[in-house]
Amino acid sequence: AANSNVPAADNDNDAAAAERKAFIEFARKGIERMDQKAAATLTVATDASAGYLAPEAFGAEILKGIVEFSPVRAYAKVTTIAAPEIKLPRKLTGTAATWVGETDDRSQSDMTFEQATFTPYELATYVDVSNQLLEDNAYNLEGELAADLGEAFGKTEATAFVSGNGTGKPKGLLVAAGIAEVKTGNAATLGTDPAATIIGMFHKVPSVVAQNGVWLMNRTTLGALRTLKDGTGRFIMLDPITAGAPVTLLGRPIVEMVDMPDVAANAYPIMFGDLSGYRIIDRIGLSVLRDPYSQATKGTVRFHARKRVGGDVTNADRFLKLKVAA
Rank of each mutant, 00 (worst) to 15 (best):
A15E: 13
V72C: 07
Q36V: 14
V72T: 13
D10P: 00
L320M: 12
L63Q: 13
A188N: 14
E157Q: 13
T156R: 13
L134Y: 02
N5P: 01
D262F: 03
G51K: 11
G164R: 04
N3I: 09
A60R: 15
A196L: 12
D262N: 15
V255M: 08
R234W: 07
A326N: 14
E181M: 11
T248D: 03
N218Y: 00
L286R: 04
D291I: 06
I280N: 00
N140L: 06
V72F: 09
P253G: 05
G101K: 08
L174R: 00
R302T: 13
M260E: 03
A188G: 09
L42K: 04
T98F: 13
R33F: 13
E135S: 15
E68D: 12
I199G: 05
A325S: 15
A48V: 10
A17E: 12
M34Q: 01
G101P: 02
L228Q: 02
K204I: 08
I86R: 08
Q295W: 07
R20W: 09
L289Q: 12
T300K: 13
N137H: 10
F26Q: 00
Y139N: 11
Y278E: 07
P240A: 07
D10Y: 11
K64E: 11
T79G: 06
V258T: 14
R279E: 13
A326W: 03
A196Y: 00
F26R: 02
